[in-house]
Amino acid sequence: MLILVAGGSGSGKSEFAENMAASAIGRLIYVATMKPWGEEGIKRIEKHRKQREGKGFETIERCTDIGSLDAEGTVLLEDLGNLAANEMFEGDTKRVFDGILELNKKCSDLIIVTDNVFEDGNIYDGDTERYIEFMGMLNCRIAAEADRVYEVIFGIPALIYSGEGKK
């Protein structure tokens, strides 16, 4: 089953996704996509590590090329925003969506956490604009493949699509 969890910064989407993943039976893998940039990045990673402590995750750090991961059971990919940026700036953008489909074939459940970077009305420089367009395209394509899509708002998960068993 493929599940997409979207939400803004601090919306509680990570915690929701982690708890959903942790309720599954069997192997539980956390794919961390963030590159630790500087002190703030390291602190952020530490916060997420603490948040999922004791929930039974094995952590795999993988910033690019997630399709080549060896995975099984339940996989939580956190998050799409970092993966997309890593592939865009020093990898291969094609590997993001294709990699998700590959990974989804290998595991029983894949849960992907993604961002809402689309509602501030700002116009940015070229790279950021391209990133926003790339993220929008990825969100739509993943949601179209997903069995369930949630949007988390103020810690409240709204199930906005459910098509379980469609595949």
């Binding site: 970077v117 689309f118 993220m135 929008g136 969100n139 739509c140």
Partner: peptide, 10 residues
């Protein structure tokens, strides 16, 4: 309504 690039036209 929706954010940019959210798939509104499609």
């Amino acid at each position: 309504i929706g954010g940019r690039c959210s798939g509104k036209r499609d």
